[in-house]
Design a protein around this nucleic acid. Structure first.
Lengths: 247, 247
DNA sequence: CCCCGCGTTTGATCCACGTCAACCCGATTG
DNA sequence: CAATCGGGTTGACGTGGATCAAACGCGGGG
């Protein structure tokens, strides 16, 4: 039941966007696309959506129609099972895509939740398929993005299957660091957007274990930790720790 | 350096195949494709490859050019890291695709190894992309397959992140059972193609733990186990065990 | 037929992480 | 400024699964 205020807000949200002058071009779908094709791409992203911290972008069980490109902000995805257990399956940041899980069965299989106020580009999936039949590079790039997600998941499986607690946290921090760096932020100093509990869920650990690992890293001079503010003091130390043989 | 025998063998391997009369149509890429398009699809699969038990279909680091559809046989995929740890990322059976991990960087990121004598259809990836620009249903189906792989990986992450040993094994066995059933085999009785060690690697457990869990299931009347021959006696019991709350 | 080797089972012990509980700290509110 | 609250830290203790070690059993080869 849209009030007039809600309608106005809705109209505001449906801002026309343009991939062709988006400063995320280098990170997002348009990678490597020719200028003349970029104009076609602009039709692809029909709307944007703004989300406040804590809002769901989509929920498990909802019908799937679009994927989403993050324009700004930070998300987590998680899956829950009836008995109450849940698993954070990923953290997504600017330029990354959300919703690929929904393609297989036309229904989303996980929840996507904004960890800070965020904005996403809505990409109707059928449009994307149509356009990628016309633009080879778009098609190929999209396939690469999906494949990269699969490779990423394999990395997480490796982490969950074979690493011990401190190795997992080191791998996690180095991964975040590298992704911040790729976006032009400091790779050494950043704010975590997620709680210890959410990190733990992602890494298959309890929040206390995560907290202890942070403390340990700080004692060992690898990190400076203040709440969610992290400064990496010894990247090589973290890297070595991550790759270390089991004793 | 192909000898004449090797050449003959090679010629033999390069058998022309036809998706249009493959009895795996219902499981594999051709799902839902119109008869007239099926003929085009036949050109897609240029060759088959036969592998003996233990052979690598591809190795991590090798250039990527094709994906593979399993015509018969059974595979595992695994990733290794320098320090010697390895993680089995999946077990693949008839009708399933291998090699999707290679799309993202044009290089395979895991090893694919035949666990029994097997045969695969070689699908040159650029051909697949070309054809899926022409055949919408092929394009869509391929996207679904990639997405399904992502969803599957999330399930494994859930398993590795939140389940205890017996729950993992129960989930694993039920999954295998269901896949055998989908292929027309008995869901209750089947032969494992993999060792306890490989199961353990997949489930993030040591082989001893896997073995003990099998013994426990047998004591509890859930399974009959003889070496790698498994008979499921109480599917509901397994299912309940899998979904059970943590104590 | 016996021997050998590998995959598996089983037992005893250990330890990394989970669990439970107390406390801390910064932000928020009345 | 006290009271409250949610997230984070820290400590004490318990336990599930890892580790180490021994024995088993099947299949293959001499």
């Amino acid at each position: 039941m849209p009030t007039s205020a809600a309608t106005a807000r809705l109209a505001f949200e449906v801002v026309k966007t343009a991939c062709s002058n988006c400063n995320l071009r280098e990170l997002c779908l348009p990678i490597g696309i020719e200028p003349e094709d970029l104009k076609k791409l602009d039709e692809l992203v029909s709307t944007r959506r703004r989300l406040k911290r804590g809002d769901h972008l989509y929920r498990a069980g909802q019908g799937f129609a679009s994927i989403y490109a993050i324009r700004s902000g930070f998300f987590k995805t998680d899956v829950l099972i009836e008995d109450g257990r849940d698993q954070v399956t990923g953290f997504q940041m600017t330029g990354e895509l959300l919703g690929l899980d929904g393609i297989s069965s036309e229904v989303h299989t996980c929840n996507a939740i904004a960890l800070e106020d965020s904005e996403v580009c809505v990409i109707p999936f059928l449009h994307l398929e149509g356009l990628s039949r016309q633009i080879h590079t778009l098609q190929h790039h999209f396939h690469k993005v999906m494949s990269r997600e699969i490779v990423r998941d394999h990395g997480v499986m490796m982490l969950l299957g074979t690493m011990r607690a401190e190795e997992r946290l080191a791998a996690f921090l180095l991964n975040l660091s590298q992704r911040f760096k790729a976006r032009g932020y400091s790779p050494a100093e950043f704010n975590l957007r997620m709680s210890r509990d959410e990190i733990g869920s992602y890494l298959g650990l309890k929040l206390e274990t995560v907290s202890r690992a942070f403390s340990r890293f700080q004692e060992d001079g690898l990190l400076a930790v203040h709440q969610r503010k992290i400064r990496i003091l010894n990247t090589d130390g973290l890297r070595k720790l991550m790759t270390h043989q089991r004793s």
